[in-house]
Design a protein around this nucleic acid. Sequence first.
RNA 1: GCCGUGGUAGCUCAGUUGGUUAGAGCGCCAGAUUGUGGCUCUGGAGGUCAGUGGUUCAAUUCCACUUCACGGUACCA
Length: 493
Amino acid sequence: MSETKNSAPSRPLARTPRGFIDRRADALMAERSVVEKVLRVYESWGYERLETPSFEYADALGKFLPDQDRPNEGVFALEDDDGQWMSLRYDLTAPLARFVAQNWDGLPKPFRRCAAGPVWRNEKPGPGRFREFWQCDADCVGSARPEADAEAIAMGADAVEAAGVPRGLYVVNVSNRKLLDGLLAKIGIDAGDVRTRLGVLRAVDKLDRLGAQGVELLLGAGRKDESGDFTKGAGLNPAAISQVMAFTATRKATRKETLAALAEVVGDTELGGEGVAELAAIDATLAALGLGEDRAFFDPAIVRGLEYYTGPVFEVELLAETVDDKGQKVRFGSIGSGGRYDDLVMRFRGERAPATGFSLGVSRLVAALSAAGHAPQARSGPVVILALDADAMAGYMQMAGQLRGAGIAAEVYLGQSGMKAQMKYADRRNAPIVVIEGSTEREAGNVTLKDLNLGAELAQSIDSNEAWRKERPAQILVPRAGLVAAVQDMLKR
RNA sequence: GCCGUGGUAGCUCAGUUGGUUAGAGCGCCAGAUUGUGGCUCUGGAGGUCAGUGGUUCAAUUCCACUUCACGGUACCA
């Protein structure tokens, strides 16, 4: 029997599932270091770390219950052998609500908790948008004070800076869900008219992308996009539309001015008045914490998640210009967001537990940072010890052991190739140094060290290959006994 | 989900008005250089031309469907 190409299709294709990615050392280190820095910031604000499982029972996650009709809408879910549905968590907040409800009596309240980990969403992936990604959250459960919201905003700004975004390259845009609710009441939309309410919220949310004109269309009859697809509008009358548009125009140059403008547009409604008062308290706290307009801004058009937030909402916008590897401008969504959600724990306990928090999208932040040219530097690889003589392997392994003993990452080349290939290998590993011990060195009790970075620099001024090979730039001969000290010395350069 | 555009080597892309053996650059492997990563030169490997079906003497090329990718839009706890 001959093995032909016809048998190939039976082999599995080596590939990652759609919307999932492999991450190599560089990306991994960047992400993990961001996570650790951000968690430290959270801890410094008094938030304790908590880790909950990847899976939760579907009913505990709420909203999207897997059922006959739509078993996988939005979440990855599976049925356990006892017939119960479990879902991979889609954020860190729902598991927190479950944890708090479950441990209510044993927790100090208000309870501050921070957490980091992967979350999963079963939806259409896009550039910079995956079906598995990391979040880094801090939430405070049990305080209805606006100071708790202000704290979340200020801490979010701190966290973003700790993650490597320079001040001035981001801004936290803050609004309050109550403002829009007050406005809706004012233009005569019934609180029970969910359809119209959501239509208005969605329309306002698109202000930054579609502009005032697009929003106006969406508030009215509807809008046709570039691809010819038609989006049905909220169906408001012209008078109501102009009131909503007036609301979206209340973003002013300072928080105080925005507050004044908001008071005028929605301050005369019950909810609107509450919203303005909360924002005023937040403004005062932010000022006390030293957050000026350059870091936290009031933007009434911020909407965020639809059925979830009940009061103040905010999102971190990246101001840096970002380009992809083709040099084209890329639009990153918000890199972090948060707000007040007073009803989440209620699902479990039947009583309101006021809560507010902040969530940082780690993967997206790291992607945005590198697109903005702020990628962390690539790390140096291990010292590579060339394997030139089969009989000398034990000695090579010993050298690597000694270097590791001194805290230096080191490895012996374990392939079968010749010296040239081994040098290329070391180059590709981003090794700072190679250790060369052939028979010449060994007989004299020496080893040769080569500084690869220095060698690459020197190579630029050598154009004949003969000279390049003869000169052996950036190499030194040292006694075998002095290997570790010499390597340490060379690393210091 | 809906609308649109696309899928040719590991990557970026030519090309085939339907016709022997489908190309380039970069990358990879090797040699020039018996022990030196860069540069230069030479050679090599690597493709079911996304998949399935149809039209045809003949399909990578035309048609249909599927799938995946990209863009827009909707949804996004």
